[in-house]
Nucleic acid binder design. Structure first.
Lengths: 122, 122
DNA sequence: CGCTTCTTCAACCAGATGGTTGACGACTGG
DNA sequence: CCAGTCGTCAACCATCTGGTTGAAGAAGCG
Protein backbone atom coordinates (compact mmCIF):
# COMPACT_ATOMS: atom_id res chain seq x y z
CA UNK A 1 0.00 0.00 0.00
CA UNK A 2 1.15 3.54 -0.75
CA UNK A 3 2.11 5.67 2.25
CA UNK A 4 0.29 8.91 1.49
CA UNK A 5 -2.43 10.11 3.80
CA UNK A 6 -5.46 9.43 1.62
CA UNK A 7 -4.22 5.93 0.75
CA UNK A 8 -3.79 5.10 4.41
CA UNK A 9 -7.30 6.32 5.22
CA UNK A 10 -8.97 4.39 2.39
CA UNK A 11 -6.93 1.27 3.15
CA UNK A 12 -7.83 1.50 6.83
CA UNK A 13 -11.53 1.58 5.97
CA UNK A 14 -11.28 -1.26 3.45
CA UNK A 15 -11.64 -3.75 6.31
CA UNK A 16 -15.08 -4.51 7.82
CA UNK A 17 -13.71 -5.03 11.32
CA UNK A 18 -12.01 -1.65 11.21
CA UNK A 19 -15.13 0.02 9.86
CA UNK A 20 -17.06 -1.56 12.71
CA UNK A 21 -14.52 -0.23 15.18
CA UNK A 22 -14.96 3.24 13.70
CA UNK A 23 -18.73 2.84 13.97
CA UNK A 24 -18.47 1.91 17.62
CA UNK A 25 -16.03 4.70 18.38
CA UNK A 26 -18.42 7.18 16.82
CA UNK A 27 -20.70 6.42 19.78
CA UNK A 28 -17.97 6.89 22.35
CA UNK A 29 -14.35 6.25 23.26
CA UNK A 30 -13.37 2.70 24.19
CA UNK A 31 -10.38 0.67 25.31
CA UNK A 32 -8.67 -2.03 23.28
CA UNK A 33 -10.18 -4.77 25.42
CA UNK A 34 -13.69 -3.37 25.14
CA UNK A 35 -13.34 -3.06 21.39
CA UNK A 36 -11.95 -6.58 21.05
CA UNK A 37 -14.68 -8.33 23.06
CA UNK A 38 -17.36 -8.70 20.34
CA UNK A 39 -14.99 -10.08 17.71
CA UNK A 40 -13.76 -13.64 17.70
CA UNK A 41 -10.16 -12.71 17.02
CA UNK A 42 -7.36 -12.23 19.52
CA UNK A 43 -6.94 -8.93 21.31
CA UNK A 44 -3.56 -8.63 19.58
CA UNK A 45 -5.27 -8.66 16.21
CA UNK A 46 -7.55 -5.84 17.32
CA UNK A 47 -4.54 -3.97 18.63
CA UNK A 48 -3.05 -4.22 15.12
CA UNK A 49 -6.27 -2.92 13.57
CA UNK A 50 -6.15 0.03 15.94
CA UNK A 51 -2.59 0.73 14.92
CA UNK A 52 -3.70 0.89 11.28
CA UNK A 53 -6.50 3.31 12.21
CA UNK A 54 -4.04 5.35 14.26
CA UNK A 55 -1.51 5.51 11.40
CA UNK A 56 -4.33 6.74 9.19
CA UNK A 57 -5.04 9.36 11.85
CA UNK A 58 -8.62 8.18 12.16
CA UNK A 59 -8.08 7.33 15.80
CA UNK A 60 -6.04 8.85 18.61
CA UNK A 61 -5.35 7.47 22.08
CA UNK A 62 -5.02 8.69 25.62
CA UNK A 63 -3.28 6.95 28.46
CA UNK A 64 -5.43 5.92 31.43
CA UNK A 65 -3.53 3.63 33.82
CA UNK A 66 -2.94 0.35 31.94
CA UNK A 67 -5.65 1.25 29.49
CA UNK A 68 -5.25 3.07 26.16
CA UNK A 69 -8.71 4.47 25.34
CA UNK A 70 -9.31 5.11 21.65
CA UNK A 71 -10.92 8.24 20.32
CA UNK A 72 -12.35 8.78 16.84
CA UNK A 73 -10.84 11.72 14.98
CA UNK A 74 -13.79 12.52 12.76
CA UNK A 75 -12.02 15.36 10.96
CA UNK A 76 -10.27 12.88 8.65
CA UNK A 77 -13.64 12.13 7.09
CA UNK A 78 -13.47 15.61 5.59
CA UNK A 79 -10.41 14.55 3.63
CA UNK A 80 -12.24 11.65 2.03
CA UNK A 81 -15.40 13.60 1.45
CA UNK A 82 -13.40 16.32 -0.27
CA UNK A 83 -11.76 13.82 -2.59
CA UNK A 84 -14.99 12.00 -3.37
CA UNK A 85 -17.04 15.13 -3.93
CA UNK A 86 -14.43 16.57 -6.24
CA UNK A 87 -14.66 13.75 -8.73
CA UNK A 88 -18.32 13.15 -8.30
CA UNK A 89 -18.92 16.79 -9.23
CA UNK A 90 -16.52 16.60 -12.13
CA UNK A 91 -18.33 13.52 -13.44
CA UNK A 92 -21.69 15.23 -13.04
CA UNK A 93 -20.41 18.37 -14.74
CA UNK A 94 -19.30 16.19 -17.60
CA UNK A 95 -22.77 14.72 -17.97
CA UNK A 96 -24.24 18.20 -17.91
CA UNK A 97 -21.95 19.31 -20.76
CA UNK A 98 -22.81 16.14 -22.66
CA UNK A 99 -26.48 16.92 -22.34
CA UNK A 100 -25.86 20.42 -23.71
CA UNK A 101 -24.03 19.00 -26.72
CA UNK A 102 -26.82 16.51 -27.33
CA UNK A 103 -29.41 19.25 -27.07
CA UNK A 104 -27.52 21.28 -29.68
CA UNK A 105 -27.30 18.28 -31.96
CA UNK A 106 -31.02 17.74 -31.57
CA UNK A 107 -31.57 21.34 -32.70
CA UNK A 108 -29.30 20.98 -35.74
CA UNK A 109 -30.98 17.82 -37.05
CA UNK A 110 -33.62 15.44 -35.81
CA UNK A 111 -31.23 12.45 -35.45
CA UNK A 112 -31.14 10.67 -32.08
CA UNK A 113 -27.56 9.54 -31.40
CA UNK A 114 -26.51 6.74 -29.05
CA UNK A 115 -26.39 8.17 -25.56
CA UNK A 116 -25.50 7.25 -22.01
CA UNK A 117 -28.54 6.12 -20.11
CA UNK A 118 -28.90 8.90 -17.56
CA UNK A 119 -31.64 11.35 -16.62
CA UNK A 120 -31.01 14.40 -18.82
CA UNK A 121 -31.22 17.83 -17.20
CA UNK A 122 -34.48 19.64 -17.95
CA UNK B 1 -9.33 -8.14 1.67
CA UNK B 2 -13.01 -8.72 2.51
CA UNK B 3 -15.35 -9.23 -0.41
CA UNK B 4 -18.23 -6.96 0.53
CA UNK B 5 -19.08 -4.00 -1.64
CA UNK B 6 -17.86 -1.18 0.57
CA UNK B 7 -14.59 -2.97 1.30
CA UNK B 8 -13.94 -3.40 -2.41
CA UNK B 9 -14.62 0.27 -3.08
CA UNK B 10 -12.40 1.54 -0.27
CA UNK B 11 -9.64 -0.93 -1.17
CA UNK B 12 -9.83 0.11 -4.81
CA UNK B 13 -9.30 3.74 -3.86
CA UNK B 14 -6.47 2.98 -1.44
CA UNK B 15 -4.04 3.06 -4.39
CA UNK B 16 -2.84 6.40 -5.79
CA UNK B 17 -2.62 5.09 -9.36
CA UNK B 18 -6.21 3.91 -9.20
CA UNK B 19 -7.35 7.20 -7.67
CA UNK B 20 -5.57 8.97 -10.51
CA UNK B 21 -7.34 6.75 -13.03
CA UNK B 22 -10.66 7.66 -11.41
CA UNK B 23 -9.70 11.33 -11.56
CA UNK B 24 -8.93 11.07 -15.26
CA UNK B 25 -12.08 9.11 -16.00
CA UNK B 26 -14.12 11.80 -14.28
CA UNK B 27 -13.11 14.02 -17.19
CA UNK B 28 -14.07 11.51 -19.82
CA UNK B 29 -14.01 7.87 -20.88
CA UNK B 30 -10.68 6.42 -21.98
CA UNK B 31 -9.16 3.19 -23.26
CA UNK B 32 -6.70 1.02 -21.37
CA UNK B 33 -3.81 2.18 -23.57
CA UNK B 34 -4.66 5.84 -23.09
CA UNK B 35 -4.90 5.39 -19.35
CA UNK B 36 -1.64 3.47 -19.18
CA UNK B 37 0.46 5.96 -21.16
CA UNK B 38 1.30 8.47 -18.37
CA UNK B 39 2.38 5.80 -15.88
CA UNK B 40 5.70 4.06 -16.02
CA UNK B 41 4.26 0.62 -15.44
CA UNK B 42 3.28 -1.99 -18.00
CA UNK B 43 -0.10 -1.85 -19.68
CA UNK B 44 -0.84 -5.19 -18.05
CA UNK B 45 -0.46 -3.63 -14.62
CA UNK B 46 -2.92 -0.91 -15.57
CA UNK B 47 -5.26 -3.56 -16.91
CA UNK B 48 -5.14 -5.19 -13.47
CA UNK B 49 -5.89 -1.88 -11.77
CA UNK B 50 -8.89 -1.45 -14.03
CA UNK B 51 -10.09 -4.90 -13.10
CA UNK B 52 -9.98 -3.90 -9.44
CA UNK B 53 -11.96 -0.75 -10.19
CA UNK B 54 -14.41 -2.78 -12.24
CA UNK B 55 -14.88 -5.36 -9.46
CA UNK B 56 -15.62 -2.46 -7.12
CA UNK B 57 -18.17 -1.29 -9.69
CA UNK B 58 -16.44 2.09 -9.90
CA UNK B 59 -15.79 1.56 -13.60
CA UNK B 60 -17.69 -0.13 -16.43
CA UNK B 61 -16.53 -0.87 -19.96
CA UNK B 62 -17.88 -0.86 -23.46
CA UNK B 63 -16.54 -2.69 -26.43
CA UNK B 64 -15.31 -0.57 -29.36
CA UNK B 65 -13.43 -2.59 -31.97
CA UNK B 66 -10.22 -3.85 -30.25
CA UNK B 67 -10.60 -1.17 -27.62
CA UNK B 68 -12.34 -1.45 -24.23
CA UNK B 69 -13.18 2.14 -23.24
CA UNK B 70 -13.60 2.67 -19.50
CA UNK B 71 -16.41 4.67 -17.99
CA UNK B 72 -16.63 6.04 -14.45
CA UNK B 73 -19.71 4.93 -12.51
CA UNK B 74 -19.99 7.89 -10.19
CA UNK B 75 -23.01 6.49 -8.36
CA UNK B 76 -20.75 4.32 -6.18
CA UNK B 77 -19.48 7.49 -4.57
CA UNK B 78 -22.89 7.79 -2.94
CA UNK B 79 -22.25 4.53 -1.10
CA UNK B 80 -19.05 5.86 0.43
CA UNK B 81 -20.49 9.25 1.18
CA UNK B 82 -23.43 7.63 2.95
CA UNK B 83 -21.14 5.55 5.14
CA UNK B 84 -18.83 8.44 5.93
CA UNK B 85 -21.60 10.92 6.68
CA UNK B 86 -23.35 8.48 8.96
CA UNK B 87 -20.45 8.18 11.36
CA UNK B 88 -19.31 11.75 11.01
CA UNK B 89 -22.79 12.86 12.08
CA UNK B 90 -22.90 10.34 14.89
CA UNK B 91 -19.55 11.61 16.18
CA UNK B 92 -20.74 15.20 15.92
CA UNK B 93 -23.98 14.35 17.67
CA UNK B 94 -21.92 12.82 20.41
CA UNK B 95 -19.95 16.03 20.87
CA UNK B 96 -23.18 17.97 20.94
CA UNK B 97 -24.53 15.79 23.73
CA UNK B 98 -21.25 16.09 25.57
CA UNK B 99 -21.50 19.85 25.37
CA UNK B 100 -25.01 19.71 26.82
CA UNK B 101 -23.81 17.59 29.72
CA UNK B 102 -20.95 19.95 30.34
CA UNK B 103 -23.27 22.93 30.26
CA UNK B 104 -25.52 21.26 32.84
CA UNK B 105 -22.55 20.51 35.05
CA UNK B 106 -21.47 24.12 34.80
CA UNK B 107 -24.93 25.14 36.03
CA UNK B 108 -24.86 22.72 38.97
CA UNK B 109 -21.47 23.83 40.29
CA UNK B 110 -18.71 26.08 39.10
CA UNK B 111 -16.14 23.27 38.63
CA UNK B 112 -14.43 22.97 35.24
CA UNK B 113 -13.88 19.26 34.50
CA UNK B 114 -11.33 17.81 32.06
CA UNK B 115 -12.78 18.06 28.59
CA UNK B 116 -12.07 17.18 24.97
CA UNK B 117 -10.45 20.11 23.21
CA UNK B 118 -13.16 21.11 20.79
CA UNK B 119 -15.12 24.24 20.13
CA UNK B 120 -18.10 24.11 22.50
CA UNK B 121 -21.54 25.04 21.15
CA UNK B 122 -22.88 28.55 21.83
C1' DC C 1 7.16 -6.36 46.57
C1' DG C 2 4.65 -9.60 43.81
C1' DC C 3 0.43 -10.71 41.32
C1' DT C 4 -2.99 -9.40 38.06
C1' DT C 5 -4.73 -6.64 34.24
C1' DC C 6 -4.31 -4.26 29.88
C1' DT C 7 -1.69 -3.78 25.94
C1' DT C 8 2.00 -4.29 22.70
C1' DC C 9 6.16 -6.56 20.64
C1' DA C 10 8.19 -10.46 17.96
C1' DA C 11 8.18 -14.26 15.14
C1' DC C 12 5.75 -16.85 12.23
C1' DC C 13 2.32 -18.29 8.52
C1' DA C 14 -1.14 -18.35 4.62
C1' DG C 15 -3.08 -15.63 1.37
C1' DA C 16 -3.67 -11.22 -1.18
C1' DT C 17 -1.50 -7.47 -3.90
C1' DG C 18 1.11 -5.08 -7.38
C1' DG C 19 4.47 -5.58 -10.32
C1' DT C 20 7.06 -8.15 -14.11
C1' DT C 21 7.54 -10.87 -18.79
C1' DG C 22 5.77 -13.81 -22.40
C1' DA C 23 2.11 -15.74 -25.00
C1' DC C 24 -2.36 -15.57 -26.63
C1' DG C 25 -7.22 -13.81 -28.25
C1' DA C 26 -10.00 -10.36 -30.51
C1' DC C 27 -10.58 -7.34 -33.85
C1' DT C 28 -9.25 -3.87 -37.74
C1' DG C 29 -7.85 -2.35 -41.86
C1' DG C 30 -5.02 -2.36 -45.82
C1' DC D 1 -6.38 -12.81 -45.67
C1' DC D 2 -2.85 -11.44 -42.75
C1' DA D 3 0.01 -8.04 -40.36
C1' DG D 4 -0.68 -5.07 -36.74
C1' DT D 5 -2.98 -3.08 -32.59
C1' DC D 6 -5.33 -3.44 -28.17
C1' DG D 7 -6.03 -5.91 -24.31
C1' DT D 8 -6.02 -9.99 -21.22
C1' DC D 9 -4.39 -14.47 -19.41
C1' DA D 10 -0.73 -17.08 -17.04
C1' DA D 11 3.14 -17.75 -14.37
C1' DC D 12 6.21 -15.91 -11.44
C1' DC D 13 8.13 -12.88 -7.73
C1' DA D 14 8.64 -9.65 -3.66
C1' DT D 15 6.14 -7.49 -0.38
C1' DC D 16 2.12 -6.46 2.50
C1' DT D 17 -1.76 -8.08 5.34
C1' DG D 18 -4.39 -10.17 8.90
C1' DG D 19 -4.27 -13.66 11.69
C1' DT D 20 -1.92 -16.74 15.20
C1' DT D 21 0.94 -17.77 19.69
C1' DG D 22 4.24 -16.61 23.23
C1' DA D 23 6.69 -13.32 25.80
C1' DA D 24 7.35 -8.88 27.62
C1' DG D 25 6.11 -3.79 29.27
C1' DA D 26 3.42 -0.80 31.95
C1' DA D 27 0.62 0.29 35.56
C1' DG D 28 -2.52 -0.54 39.56
C1' DC D 29 -3.70 -3.34 43.69
C1' DG D 30 -3.15 -6.09 47.99
Amino acid sequence: MADDRLSRVFAALADPTRRDIVARLSVGDATVGELARPYDVSVQAVSKHLRVLEDAELVSRRRDAQRRPCHLEAEVFDLMTAWIERYRRQAEERFRRLDVVLAEMAEDDGATPTHHERGAAS
